[in-house]
Amino acid sequence: MEDSITLEDKLKERIKELTCLYRVSSLIRNSNFNNRKALLNEIGISLKQAIRFPKEAFVEIKVDEITVVTGKKIEDAIFIISAIKTFSHIKGAVTVGYSKRKFSENAFLKEEKLLLKKIALEIGDFLEREQIKEKEKIAQSQIERAGRLTILGEITAGIAHELNTPLANILGFTELLKERYKDDEIGSEDLDKVIDSAIYSREVVKKLMFFSCEMPQQMTAININTIIEESIRLLNPNFKKKNISCTVSFSSDEVYLKVDKIQLTQVIFNLVMNAIYFSPFKGKINIEVKDKQKIVEIKISDEGEGISKENSENIFNPFFTTKPVGEGAGLGLSVVHGIIKSHKGTIAHETNSPKGTIFVVRFPKS
């Protein structure tokens, strides 16, 4: 089947190749990134039609986990292949093949090999644009979320200030009433309930002020290893309740940071308490502290159920919680976020393997 090719045949092949390139460019240009497999399938059909012997050929396009084959794939085949790259990384390949029984390697024209490279390049460019668009979407989402958190911070700061005065009045006047009705046992008990409720409300207000960074900070350079070790010791009873093992590792014996000691303790407490709450019985929690060139990184990982995609955008928002009613006010992580932000740091979460969540806190050294 590999007869010599005439000038007229060469011209026909060039037309087929140019038609294929135009068709592929049009497909990619008009793609909305929604159905990658359908796009690759159309490209495969166009490429197969452009090959010298389309009825005998098969085309295979692989990109990440997607594989499309046009024509009947032949295992014992001769083929040409071109890598698909995005940002210099190989993401897949385009392959065109014939049966070894009918064809030799001379069946492929030099121009067909160039065509394959051009199509692989077109697909690579498309994938790069897809990645850029996805990164832009994530960046936009992060900007919008940061804006929402800033507005929430301003709102909660105002709420906290407005509530502080009436709560102080409730506590003060209730104490006076308790003195007046000290002989009334039932009345005193009721007043104790009012005092307890006011104190609880004041703690919620304090957390709101932490979230909005309104609490005064006492920044000192301290060895944070000591703070983390002390926090873990204090939480020992909580570990024992669920028979959870906790391992702590430090990249160096002393890791110094300029932080507010009380606020950093609150960050560690909240994150570890969360890890304990969501960990299974006999689970494992790992705390890792790394002293890097420009930052200090703290990783806290658990083996819980992990954070679902729909909740991941909201976990640092105040009053958002996945805990049952009465077991959490939804302020723990928002307080943590506020404290870390006030220290010019960042907090993020990622999936633990094989299950669970890793919270990653990074503080700048400067």
Score class of each variant (00 low, 15 high):
Asp76Glu: 05
Ser249His: 13
Tyr98Ser: 12
His337Gln: 06
Glu60Ser: 15
Glu303Ile: 11
Ser88Val: 11
Ile228Gln: 01
Ile132Val: 11
Ile80Leu: 02
Leu40Tyr: 00
Lys206Pro: 06
Val255Trp: 14
Ser334Pro: 02
Phe319Val: 07
Gly304Ile: 04
Tyr277Lys: 05
Phe33Asn: 12
Glu136Met: 12
Ala146Gln: 14
Lys37Cys: 04
Ile195His: 00
Arg101Asn: 10
Lys12His: 13
Ile315Pro: 12
Lys55Phe: 08
Val325Cys: 09
Leu163Gln: 12
Glu305His: 10
Leu152Asp: 03
Gly330Arg: 06
Lys323Gly: 05
Ile339Gly: 04
Leu40Asp: 00
Glu214Arg: 12
Ser26Gly: 12
Thr321Tyr: 02
Thr174Met: 00
Ser353Phe: 08
Glu327Val: 02
Lys117Asn: 12
Lys178Ser: 01
Phe33Leu: 13
Ile295Glu: 13
Tyr200Cys: 03
Ser104Pro: 14
Val69Tyr: 04
Pro280Gly: 15
Gly172Lys: 00
His337Thr: 15
Ile186Leu: 06
Glu175Cys: 00
Gly71Ile: 13
Leu208Arg: 05
Leu40Trp: 01
Leu11Tyr: 15
Asn225Ser: 06
Asn223Cys: 03
Ile339Phe: 03
Ser251Ile: 04
Val272Ile: 03
Leu47Lys: 06
Ile222Val: 09
Thr357Ser: 02
Glu254Cys: 09
Glu230His: 07
Phe53Val: 14
Leu167Phe: 00
Cys246Leu: 13
Phe316His: 10
Ser366Trp: 08
Thr86Glu: 14
Lys12Pro: 14
Ile123Leu: 02
Lys113Cys: 05
Cys246Tyr: 07
Lys133Val: 13
Lys323Val: 06
Ile74Gln: 10
Leu191Trp: 01
Ile61Leu: 03
Lys258Cys: 03
Glu350Arg: 13
Ile43Lys: 01
Pro166Ile: 01
Ala38Asp: 02
Ile295Arg: 07
Asn30Trp: 12
Ile268Ser: 02
Leu11Thr: 08
Pro280Phe: 15
Ala139Val: 12
Ile123Val: 01
Lys72Leu: 12
Glu136Gly: 03
Leu167Thr: 00
Ile300Ser: 01
Gly44Ile: 04
Arg180Ala: 07
Met1Arg: 06
Val94Cys: 07
Thr174Ser: 00
Phe58Leu: 02
Lys294Tyr: 15
Tyr256Ser: 06
Pro324Arg: 06
Leu191Ala: 04
Ser82Leu: 10
Val360Ala: 02
Glu128Thr: 10
Val336Cys: 05
His89Arg: 15
Leu234Met: 15
Glu305Arg: 15
Val59Ile: 14
Ala93Ser: 12
Thr351Pro: 11
Leu39Ile: 01
Lys241Ile: 09
Ala120Thr: 02
Ser141His: 15
Leu234Trp: 07
Ile123Gly: 01
Ala329Gly: 05
Lys241Val: 09
Asn34Phe: 15
Gly44Ala: 09
Arg233Glu: 11
Cys246Pro: 05
Ile339Val: 11
Glu185Val: 09
Phe281Tyr: 13
Phe211Tyr: 08
Lys55Arg: 06
Thr322Met: 06
Lys365Ser: 07
Ile138Met: 03
Glu144Leu: 07
Asn243Val: 15
Val259Trp: 04
Ser104Asp: 09
Val336Phe: 05
Met219Lys: 08
Ile228Pro: 00
Leu257Tyr: 10
Ile295Pro: 14
Glu203Tyr: 10
Ile195Pro: 00
Leu333Trp: 04
Arg129Trp: 09
Lys102Gln: 14
Ile28Tyr: 01
Asn223Pro: 01
Arg145Cys: 11
Ile232Leu: 03
Asn243Phe: 11
Thr156Trp: 14
Pro364Arg: 06
Glu130Tyr: 05
